[in-house]
Amino acid sequence: MGKALIIGAGGVASVVVHKCVQNSDVFEEICIASRTVSKCDALKNKLDGGKTIIHTAQVDADNTDELIELINSFGPDVVINVALPYQDLTIMDACLATGVHYIDTANYEPLDTAKFEYKWQWAYKEKFEKAGLTALLGSGFDPGVTGVFTAYAQKHHFDEIHYIDIVDANAGDHGYHFATNFNPEINIREITANGRYFKDGEWVETAPLSEKQVYDLPEIGPKDIYLMYHEELESLSKNIKGVKQIRFWMTFSEKYLTHLKVLENVGMTSIEPIMYEGKEIVPLQFLTAILPDPASLGERTKGKTNIGCVIQGVKDGQPKTYYVYNVSDHEACFKEVGSQAISYTTGVPAMIGAMLVMNGTWQKPGVYNVEEFDPDPFMEALNEFGLPWKESFSPTLLD
């Protein structure tokens, strides 16, 4: 059916490539591009020989001119951005300049301060409308599937949604004293930021990881969950009309939080540059360089993830509670695509979003978050491509 340019060659990109190759009727030709072309070549060598034709290229995703040159030479129908979120805008600019649809999994982040906001990308709405192009933001799991879950609940189960609790639980164990399951720099910036949630039309801010509950999750049991801010809260609060409260919760072990606190106390999580032996370095970037590569964790990780939405509202005048979630097994994911479940649960939805844009199902000029489209084709594709979802109508409610 078409061609996709995949920018990035890390753990999530590897899953996207595997899934595009599995879906060769749609992705007839792909190009994997990264600053480190050897990583792209390694993926190509691993997966060559199937129906999907695979190319590789070297590109600096911070350089719009390089991106434009690559897009023009390959001629893709869509660009799947699984590079760093600092590079979203340069890639969006390149898509506009070349007339190509855009898909990503994480909102743009300025390098200096962790913001977790969509405003920079939403500002492109008119440009994409005028160009007749679709920009699909946050087509990962959270953000991504959690937004689709909410839209599905709104379409099929509620007249009004009042409360949404997104719960992201990872019960996997990789055996290291301390490691992050995705890009360490993004992960640590996210965790050390203030918590924030939406309530009655306003944002309520909390100290980092200061709000904690224990929640009993299907297939993985009771876990400590901590309130955090996550960017899908911003889009859901805008797009789900009448919602009174939206919160995001994530699991962390005591061991993980202890290591993180020590690193924070000694300044290793800072993004303020310091001088070291005549060179300027960013402590968090240095820490990222010495921590295990998230892409290397797959073969070591055992256990499961459970990510879903507990939603309360009204249907036919009666109160209703609905829980929709996915459970993924780290070892099963690694056996299938060579990546742990964190990368898998992000990469599969990125491929699905690209497929729906490319085949016209989710094609609409402008800049959109996933919950602004019909959720049904995405929900069907989750079951087909490795992220089957389950639902419950009597979940335990969070306080």
Rank of each mutant, 00 (worst) to 15 (best):
L382P: 15
V337S: 14
A350K: 11
A289R: 04
C333E: 03
D374Q: 05
G366L: 00
K335C: 02
L382D: 12
P319D: 02
I281Y: 13
N369M: 06
Y368L: 03
R300I: 01
K302N: 00
A350H: 12
Q312W: 01
M355D: 10
V357I: 08
P319N: 00
K279C: 02
I342P: 07
E371I: 11
P283A: 05
L291D: 14
G298F: 02
S296V: 08
S343Y: 10
L297M: 00
Q340Y: 12
P349Q: 04
H330E: 01
T345E: 13
G347V: 12
W362F: 06
L382M: 15
T361F: 01
V324S: 01
D376E: 15
L356F: 04
G298R: 06
M351D: 12
G360A: 07
N369S: 14
L382H: 12
V370G: 08
F334N: 15
A295D: 12
K304D: 02
P294N: 09
D329W: 05
F373R: 02
G308H: 02
K320L: 12
V357F: 06
D293P: 01
F378S: 07
V367K: 04
K364L: 07
P283C: 06
V367G: 06
G317E: 12
N383I: 11
D329I: 10
T301W: 00
D293K: 14
V357P: 05
D329S: 12
S296E: 14
V314I: 15
P377K: 11
V282R: 01
V357Y: 03
